[in-house]
Design a protein around this nucleic acid. Structure first.
Length: 720
DNA sequence: ACTCATTAAATTTTT
DNA sequence: TTTAATGAGT
């Protein structure tokens, strides 16, 4: 037991050994958050304060849940199987599977991922003959999810105007469609299990008395409904132990509500919030920079990271002429790092938006540096896998129209748009699923459809097979394999289909129930849930020791010896869409905070004067976030103050072997891309010019002050 | 039913 | 630039 607590700092120890009470742990980046969470769990169990079955621990990602389980089993000789440790969605799924009748769901209900949900909405709009110009499917999806994430059903939405009312009707119709098809989307998993517990008192009491301790990871990312779910489950008896960092809340756009932290503190009278501020990850300069940046945010619970490690190296800042130059500089710098013995896998290239990865990839590829990009397609999201899964879903539930529509004509079997339209009309008229409406379609189309129905029927007969064989059977019988074999570039897809069979094998092995009679259908259902809830690894890159490329969002929770943050420009990072709303800017800043705190030893920041975006050259100002870092922590690799010499030549004083020495002149005394200064609008960059002589006008991006056209004969514009 | 061409739109995304 | 989604043509 004392082993368990060894090496914890005072705050960590206090958090881990807190007596049974509600607790809020403010855990800064790199402060040992996961360790505290798992040690708390182990300590509670090993001191017999709670039975393993009396604990519920919830995370956001499967990775985090798995990590917690692994660490826990390393600390304690207990069987973690059967413990309620998982993601919100995973636990809700478990709850709904166990009580599907009470929840009003079919036993083998299927889970729609975001793409499935969007497809279902499009199908709905088409069936209702609704103009998708007026109701863009994506927007509607967002609307529905936003309501659900606040726990609001269609009948409870406050419809201010006609437009909202129409969307509420569609929300309602969507709900009916899902119910008829026996499918639930991600948000529905949460909402449905919340409603299940809140309406079913015996059930609620059962779980409330079972769980004595509820531990929550990444609490700052919970949405309104998740917090209510936690409160409901905790009841009056359980202790809520919430760990989070308001400064790392970067998912507000997805419904996460940092306000939950304050609410929790208030509602549960948490009087001693424990702050984990000692950082074990980064050198001092990096932490100081992060602290300085985040200080500009007004709405914070307050926290200041410190470290026992030394100041370390300065933060290196590079100003490039163009995005291409920025990328080439990064390559040179990376090569130098690797020469100095850094492993490539310990170097991360971070960016605000995915579009920026292209030029980086291109440049790295040319330089022959191996890299791995996160954020691509994941295994269970691949087209061929989704197709195969759709067949499996139809085996489990023929009324799953989303699955049906996906594969009714894939591989192509002569069922065209016309036939499908007829079928949809028939289904609509009968109020039935597409599958059930097949007999109602007359003529040749009806016959082709009937053949498809026969295929489904035949597949269904195989439900008694063990899962891996069932998967293989479906892939064969559906002709998916033969279809991809004939395709030119189908080899990878066939390989993935084989991989799906493997996945089914290892899934059955891990679940540990090798085909008990009558459990086979349940096996299929849980495999399908697994596929929906754990989309699998992101696309794997080649090479073991590869550079890590990812967005700042996906870097959360990771750390690297050296980190490059590129594209630090106004409009990009902070992103222009985030600057518009005042809350948006604070979220952008938290994003910067997350990015900076990924670095252990070395941090590079870079920006470019010109950048190709959407096929057009853009001229951006340096990001305000660079200025927010105290100058003393920073080493500019390019001169910070540029001196404009006669003849348009760039004169500089610092170390700079990358900068070209000449630039094109426009002939009006200013050039596009030039930094200028205006008495009223402040510093800016010239992005466009027209006319000449007395009529010359230039367009200037003043960043904070916006974009202006200025006549040179009138405006007082100086070279900066 | 499939291919080609045009058009519009374009952050971030744990489940 | 690039992608996805439509429409025309084969």
């Amino acid at each position: 037991m004392s082993d368990l607590l060894r090496g914890l700092n005072p705050q960590q120890l206090a958090a881990v050994t807190l007596p049974p009470q509600h607790a809020l742990i403010l855990a800064g980046a790199g402060s040992g958050k996961t360790r505290v969470l798992t040690t708390r769990l182990a300590w509670l169990i090993s001191t017999n304060q709670v039975d393993p079955a009396g604990v519920l621990a919830v995370t956001f990602t499967n990775k985090a849940a798995k990590e917690m389980l692994t660490r826990l089993s390393a600390m304690l000789p207990i069987n973690t199987r059967g413990m309620w440790i998982g993601t919100f969605h995973g636990l809700c799924n478990r709850l709904l599977r166990a009580h599907y009748r009470d929840a009003g769901l079919p036993q083998l209900f299927q889970i729609l991922d975001s793409a499935d949900q969007l497809a279902a909405i499009k199908r709905l709009l088409k069936a209702l003959n609704i103009d998708d110009e007026k109701f863009p499917p994506r927007e509607l999806q967002h609307f529905i999810n936003a309501q659900k994430e606040q726990g609001i059903r269609a009948n409870a939405v406050e419809a201010w105007d006609g437009y909202v009312r129409q969307r509420v009707e569609l929300y309602e119709a969507y709900e009916q469609q899902c119910q008829r098809e026996g499918v639930v989307d991600f948000a529905e998993l949460l909402l449905r299990s919340y409603e299940l517990l809140s309406r079913n008192e015996p059930l609620r009491r059962h779980y409330q008395s079972r769980f004595r301790h509820i531990l929550v990871d990444e609490f700052q990312d919970t949405n309104v409904l998740q917090y209510r779910w936690l409160k409901l489950l905790a009841g009056d008896g359980a202790c809520l132990f919430c760990v989070g960092d308001d400064d790392q809340s970067i998912y507000a756009f997805r419904g996460a509500d940092v306000g939950n932290m304050r609410d929790f503190e208030r509602e549960y009278r948490v009087d001693n919030v424990i702050r984990l501020e000692q950082n074990y990850r980064s050198h001092g300069n990096i932490l100081d920079a992060a602290n300085a940046v985040i200080k500009n945010n007004l709405s914070r619970l307050g926290k200041n990271l410190w470290t026992e490690a030394g100041a370390g190296e300065p933060i290196r800042v590079f100003e490039a002429m163009s995005d291409g130059e920025e990328a080439r500089w990064m390559v040179e710098e990376i090569k130098a790092l690797v020469r100095d013995g850094h492993s490539r896998a310990e170097i991360a290239l971070l960016y605000r938006s995915n579009a920026q990865s292209r030029i980086l990839e291109h440049t790295l590829f040319s330089a022959g540096l191996p890299y791995r990009v996160y954020g691509g397609l994941r295994f269970f999201e691949r087209q061929e896998i989704k197709h195969a899964l759709a067949y499996l879903r139809l085996i489990a539930n023929p009324d799953d129209d989303t699955a049906f529509a996906r594969i009714v004509n894939f591989p192509p079997r002569g069922i065209g748009a016309r036939s499908i339209e007829q079928l949809q009309d028939a289904a609509r008229a009968a109020g039935s699923s597409l599958h059930a409406a097949i007999p109602a379609v007359p003529g040749k189309a009806g016959a082709t459809l009937a053949a498809f129905a026969a295929l489904i029927e035949k597949l269904h007969e195989a439900i008694e097979l063990p899962l891996p064989e069932l998967v293989e059977h479906a892939i064969e019988l559906s002709a998916l394999r033969s279809h991809y074999l004939t395709e030119k570039e189908g080899q990878d897809r066939v390989a993935n289909l084989d991989e799906l069979i493997n996945a089914a094998s290892s899934f059955t092995a891990e679940e540990g129930r090798v085909g008990e009679e009558g459990e086979l259908a349940a096996d299929l259902a849980s495999f399908l849930s697994h596929a929906a809830l754990e989309a699998g690894e992101h696309q794997a890159g080649e090479g073991d020791d590869a550079l890590q490329l990812m967005t700042v969002h996906s870097a959360k929770g990771l750390e690297f010896n050296a980190v490059f943050i590129s594209g630090l420009e106004e409009g990009l990072f902070p992103h222009e869409n985030g600057i518009k709303e005042d809350k948006g800017l604070e979220e952008e800043r938290r994003l910067m905070y997350v990015a900076v705190t990924r670095a252990r030893q070395r941090l590079y920041l870079s920006f470019a004067q010109t950048r190709m975006l959407h096929g057009q050259t853009r001229y951006n100002m340096p990001s305000r976030f660079i200025e927010e870092i105290p100058a003393g922590l920073v080493k500019w690799l390019t001169p910070k103050i540029k001196v404009q010499a006669p003849g348009g030549r760039q004169v500089h004083t610092g170390v700079d072997s990358y900068r070209p020495t000449t630039r094109a002149q426009s002939g009006i005394g200013f050039r596009i891309g030039q930094s200028v200064k205006h008495a009223k609008f402040g510093p800016g960059v010239i992005v466009n010019a027209e006319g000449g002589g007395n009529d010359a006008r230039v367009q200037v991006n003043f960043g904070k002050a916006g974009m202006k056209w200025l006549a040179l004969s009138v405006a007082k514009l100086d070279a900066a």
